[in-house]
């Protein structure tokens, strides 16, 4: 069953499109990796999915609806972890969690239950009343992650999640993603850490210069590049070289 469907999506910040005719979908319970060089259009693609940019052409359906059909319903269906943490300097960690809970209509007892679990998992229990100015980059990232998982949505959109996290943090995040996947949630994750992507993603979408260059399971990709024993790193390099020759 398809949860997210991009059909022929073209768009960007100005008239000149950054992403061109994107077609891909994410099924229920699937973890999909969005891979590409700097400037390939990963973040732009994500901005179109979360609705801060509108496609110039094509449409994006999340759980069957577009943003313009029902904005509240659309927004309730996903949570987003941006590449650089975006926190409110004036709110404590606890207040970030409370604010998120209110926005997504989570009641107080559920908030308490879920946030206790998350705080323990990410070892932030003692930081509840801290302001973000006292947090390291990794801790800021953890606040974003906890807020996203608190919502328990159908789709998680995670932009470059591992940068700045310590090894324990990365493991906790992967565990959380695994758990949510098992419970039926879908995840779209953009990353440069290819070994992790190869190990954890069900499917990979290779983005190059604003277009989908290849997509599928690792086996699909190996077949399409005709490299039967390749790792994702090999495929990635092959893709960029191929483009250079053209």
């Amino acid at each position: 069953m398809t949860l997210l469907q991009l059909s022929d999506v073209t768009g960007g910040y100005t008239r000149k499109p950054v992403i061109k005719g994107l077609n891909f979908s994410i099924g229920k319970g699937e973890l999909v990796g969005l891979i590409g060089l700097n400037g390939a259009g990963k973040s732009t693609t994500i901005k179109h999915i979360i609705g801060t940019l509108l496609p110039q052409k094509g449409e994006i359906r999340l759980n069957g609806i577009t943003l313009s059909e029902d904005i509240d319903q659309y927004r309730s269906s996903f949570s987003y972890i941006p590449e650089t943490p975006v926190l409110y300097d004036e709110l404590t960690l606890k207040e970030h969690l409370e604010l998120t809970a209110m926005a997504y209509g989570i009641d107080e007892s559920t908030l308490k239950l879920r946030s206790e679990e998350l705080l323990k998992e990410f070892r932030m229990e003692k930081r509840l009343n801290w302001f973000p100015s006292h947090f390291s980059k990794g801790m800021r990232q953890k606040v974003m992650i906890m807020c996203a998982f608190l919502v328990n949505p159908k789709l998680y959109i995670i932009d470059e999640p591992f940068v700045g996290l310590d090894p324990l943090g990365i493991q906790s995040l992967l565990d959380q993603m695994d758990e949510k996947k098992k419970a039926g949630a879908s995840i779209l994750m953009s990353t440069h850490i290819l070994s992790t992507a190869e190990k954890h993603c069900d499917r990979i979408i290779l983005l190059h210069e604003g277009r989908v260059r290849a997509q599928g399971t690792m086996d699909d990709l190996r077949r399409s590049f005709n490299m039967p024993t390749a790792t994702l790193d090999d495929l990635y390099i092959a893709m960029t070289k191929e483009q250079d020759h053209e």
Binding site: I50, T52, D72, R75, Y80, P82, V86, A103
Partner: peptide, 11 residues
């Protein structure tokens, strides 16, 4: 600047 509340499913 982008703020997270721009994505919240509220009016």
């Amino acid at each position: 600047d982008f703020r997270m509340d721009r994505l919240y499913p509220v009016k």
